[in-house]
Amino acid sequence: MDYKNIQTICPYCGCGCALNLEVIDGEIVGVLPANDHPVSQGSLCIKGWNAHAFVGHEDRLKKPLIRKNGQLEEVSWNEALKLVAKNLGSIQKKHGADSIGVLTSAKCTNEENYLLQKFARAVIGTNNVDHCARL
C-alpha cells in the first residue's frame, strides 16, 4: 500500500507547467496540479490534466514497427534506423535535400531538438525544420 505524488514537468508544450503524478503502488493513476509551483501556480490545461493517460495506454508504441507484406512487425532499432537512413538517402539523391522536412516535438528535450535540427541542416542539408509548438 503506497500512495505518493511525484512532481514533474508537463510533457506536452513548451510552457513548462508542473504537475503531480499520482502514483499508487507504482502505477500512475492520475494528475494533480502543483499548487505551489512558480510557473503554473496550480493551473493546468486539458492536456496536462490527462498527461497520465498515455503512459500505460495499450495503443502506446513501445518498439519500432516496419510494415512487411502489409503487416506491421516488431523489429530491432538497428533494422528500423537502417531502413530510415536508406530511404531518406535515396529520396535525398533522387529529389534533392529540400524534398525532406523535419518536424521536431515539444515532447523532446531542448538537446534532442537541437540534435534534430543539426541533423536536418548538416546531414540532410535542408532548412525545412519545424516544431509543433510554433503553431
Partner: peptide, 20 residues
C-alpha cells in the same frame, strides 16, 4: 490505522501523500 492521507512537503513542493 493503515495509513493517513495528508499533505507532504518535499523539495518540489507539497502534494497529497499516504503517511504510513
Amino acid at each position: 490505522l493503515d495509513g493517513i492521507v495528508a499533505l507532504r512537503s518535499t523539495e518540489d513542493g507539497a502534494a497529497p501523500y499516504l503517511f504510513q
